[in-house]
Computed example of a mutant assay.
Amino acid sequence: MEKNKIIRIKDIAKLSGVSVGTVDRVIHKRGKVSDEARKKVEKILKEIDYTPNLLAKTLGSNKTNKIAILVPHPEEDPYWKLSLDNLDAAKKEWQPYQMQIETYFFKLNDEQSFKKAAKNVLKNKPDAIISAPIFLNVALDFFNEIEDLGIPYVHFNTMINGVSPLAFIGQDLYQSGQLAGSLIALSTPSPSGTVAILHISEKVQHSVHFIEKERGFRDYFKEHQFNKMEVVSIIIEGDDMKSFESKLVEAIKSNDIKGLFIPTSSGAKLTANIISKYKLPNICIVGYDLLKENIELLKSGQINFLINQNPNKQVNRGIYHLANHLLFKKEPPNLELFPLEIITKHNLDSYIKSNLH
């Protein structure tokens, strides 16, 4: 069969040696088919990677499928704005197939805001849901509820235990923390001193993605027996920048910090600027994501490494998997893990020009 040629049911019937009616019953899972005939048809379907014509199927139906996206408000953090960068293009792409994509926002550090947004999602009766389940306790309640309602859902960015999404899309957060540890260890000439994970205005105890990153970071130094390298957490609450500066400078000086791991996208800019302002000793900084300000800091050498997470691609893959599930009952992979991409000033330009991000 020629590549890209439209495969018709009668073509499949000819290849498998059965009738057109038999092929139709196998594809649509209706009526009686002998085991022998089913195996013949399924063998051909697998060989040609057959998918029913999406447009013909959906245009013949009056049903509109609603996909809800439940995420932190994009104005609160540039990472979440980045996650929705290609959303308009995705909406346009899926519109001919009668997919309606709706966004619901909650405040990044407010569990009650998450509860309210989740309630609004259910009120509008979506057919499927994409979400980043940041808050552990309230997230568990919400996803247990939608499982009881039979609503399929996909997680991106953060994976939690105790629930059963169709798929998780994102990075292995534990390995991400381990990677950060290895980058700092490689960049720290002295085997002694202190390395730190910096939490800025985060509810760490409820934020699964921060917990996993820190666990991986700490375990890296334990497993590789850096006995003289102490790992500490620096937790700075509040929004007052003057207070933030003084707390960070005091923490760095009092702990003799050699390396800083910052598990948020926006934290690298705040930290690097303060280190530069106070002319603190050379500290290796590992941050996240290709935000505009992070790119500039990487180019100038104020931060050493960025671990890129491709948040916009995570959302788009979630839409893709749910759309295919709603249309064809197609099961996505349980895990779709994105690679842990290390970006430095030396490979930044080639990476950006490759259009992979």
Score class of each variant (00 low, 15 high):
192 S>N: 13
192 S>D: 15
192 S>P: 00
193 G>A: 05
193 G>D: 02
193 G>H: 00
194 T>G: 09
194 T>E: 07
194 T>V: 03
194 T>M: 07
195 V>I: 12
195 V>E: 04
195 V>H: 03
195 V>T: 02
195 V>A: 10
196 A>C: 11
196 A>G: 10
196 A>P: 05
196 A>I: 01
196 A>N: 05
196 A>Q: 04
197 I>P: 02
197 I>M: 12
197 I>H: 04
197 I>K: 01
198 L>W: 00
198 L>E: 03
198 L>T: 02
198 L>R: 02
198 L>K: 01
198 L>A: 08
198 L>M: 08
199 H>V: 00
199 H>S: 13
199 H>R: 11
200 I>L: 13
201 S>K: 12
201 S>C: 10
201 S>T: 09
202 E>G: 10
202 E>S: 15
202 E>N: 15
202 E>R: 14
202 E>H: 14
202 E>D: 15
202 E>C: 12
203 K>R: 14
203 K>Y: 08
203 K>G: 14
203 K>A: 13
203 K>C: 11
203 K>L: 15
204 V>M: 07
204 V>I: 12
205 Q>V: 11
205 Q>P: 02
205 Q>H: 14
205 Q>Y: 13
206 H>L: 13
206 H>E: 14
206 H>F: 13
206 H>W: 08
207 S>W: 00
207 S>C: 13
207 S>F: 04
207 S>T: 14
208 V>D: 04
208 V>E: 13
208 V>M: 13
208 V>S: 13
208 V>G: 09
208 V>R: 12
208 V>N: 10
209 H>D: 08
209 H>S: 14
210 F>V: 05
210 F>H: 15
210 F>Y: 12
210 F>S: 10
211 I>S: 09
211 I>H: 07
212 E>L: 15
212 E>Y: 10
213 K>P: 08
213 K>V: 01
213 K>R: 15
214 E>G: 04
214 E>P: 03
214 E>C: 04
214 E>Y: 07
215 R>T: 09
215 R>E: 09
215 R>D: 06
215 R>M: 13
216 G>C: 05
216 G>T: 00
217 F>A: 09
217 F>D: 06
217 F>G: 08
217 F>Y: 12
217 F>C: 09
217 F>I: 05
218 R>F: 06
218 R>I: 09
218 R>D: 11
218 R>Y: 06
218 R>P: 03
218 R>H: 09
219 D>G: 06
219 D>I: 02
219 D>K: 09
219 D>H: 07
219 D>T: 03
219 D>Q: 12
219 D>F: 03
220 Y>W: 02
220 Y>H: 04
220 Y>K: 07
220 Y>E: 08
221 F>T: 04
221 F>P: 10
222 K>G: 01
222 K>E: 10
222 K>L: 13
222 K>P: 02
223 E>R: 04
223 E>Y: 01
223 E>S: 06
224 H>M: 04
224 H>A: 07
224 H>C: 05
224 H>R: 06
224 H>L: 05
